[in-house]
Design a protein around this nucleic acid. Sequence first.
DNA 1: CAAGGCATGTACCGTACGGTACGGTTCGTG
DNA 2: CACGAACCGTACCGTACGGTACATGCCTTG
Lengths: 217, 217
Amino acid sequence: MSSDPLTAPEFSPRQNAVLGQALRLLVDGGEKALTTAGVARAANCSKESLYKWFGDRDGLIAAMIAFQASKVRTFERDGERLNVASLREHLVMFAKDLLEVLSGDVSLALNRLAVSQSSRDGSKLGELLLEHGRRQIDRRARALIDAGRRAGLLTFDDGEEAYRTLYGLIVSDMHVRMLLGERPQGDFTQRAEKAVRAFLTLHGTAKTLAEAGLAPV
Amino acid sequence: MSSDPLTAPEFSPRQNAVLGQALRLLVDGGEKALTTAGVARAANCSKESLYKWFGDRDGLIAAMIAFQASKVRTFERDGERLNVASLREHLVMFAKDLLEVLSGDVSLALNRLAVSQSSRDGSKLGELLLEHGRRQIDRRARALIDAGRRAGLLTFDDGEEAYRTLYGLIVSDMHVRMLLGERPQGDFTQRAEKAVRAFLTLHGTAKTLAEAGLAPV
DNA sequence: CAAGGCATGTACCGTACGGTACGGTTCGTG
DNA sequence: CACGAACCGTACCGTACGGTACATGCCTTG
């Protein structure tokens, strides 16, 4: 890795096209299908170019992660005044987006790849994936629940811990199960709404609980 | 796979010793270290015996999963009368055990292996791992929260869903992060207690909430 | 047009792995 | 003791992959 992919994740259009083909190859055939010769054939480029651009196979994979992360952009529109209904709506939207992202083909394939490489020492692939893939969506959720607290709708001491709780309520073990090959079952919308309801029960203020009809029996 | 490892997961002592060495090899060196020649060398047996006993490499891995599952036995002692304190204690114990199991070296190595193989079609490794590794601990938790409901301490409609909630509160994304190579941070006991507190807040009856001092502010 | 950079395609090399075959050894059994 | 089964160690085979070298062709630039 000659250039730091954390600060220089930009490639030429031709290279982006190659990375896209590589991702497609990975999604379709799994890790063992991601051979340098296979990528070169699928992208109509030469292996020599691959090594010139990305250094080695690990560099190619790192570039694929950066490329995919650059495609998944999440918009965080805030500044608007939050009330119980809008907070809930935003939380449900976030939950659904999170479930969609995690269950996506490319996300699952890249996560599988990073997991399988993580046993090798010095492989920063997992770190890279967490940093690139999660940072955006994590910041969006953190900003949302912080705004909820500022608006007097949520109560918690540690924002990070509250976010972890929200994440666990939404995802549970679904991500690992999908990584292991299980197909997602159940409706994402329903799952998201239930998770948000539980989260509000745990961290909503009295005002929120009353307005949302979540007062404990 | 000539014999069904779901119903016949028993092997001779010699074979068990070989499987143990194979697991050690996998834990130490990751998936790429788990070569048939390496296992044979580490276990002082011949490759021919490996293929005779386990069929092929996949059969060996399946046998490793069954062997490891046979070692991790979880005791579910029930029948005692549950009160709020004992329910809470059992839940915390379960949560700590779950975190211990998931963060164990062998568990992580096997999960990484199953995840990396899950993209290949027809690979029932993930299914096998979920079935063997989780069944015991899942049943224990399910029995516990069902007993809690029968004792009038918990309230929920769907036991499976309640368990998923408990699981998510305990683990959140820690499992995936560990699979990606991150070292677990924080105290398991504290994490377990917080998760159980949240679970009781969500699914405890009025009696439970009052006795546990969890009445919402 | 000439020249040089850049990309492609192919051929090649070394290595490592899954799986098989075979000779030698140990051990239980009639 | 003789026999056979099981097993060990090793050598072997075919294949596939990562990485490199080289010849050809395109496209810009002076």
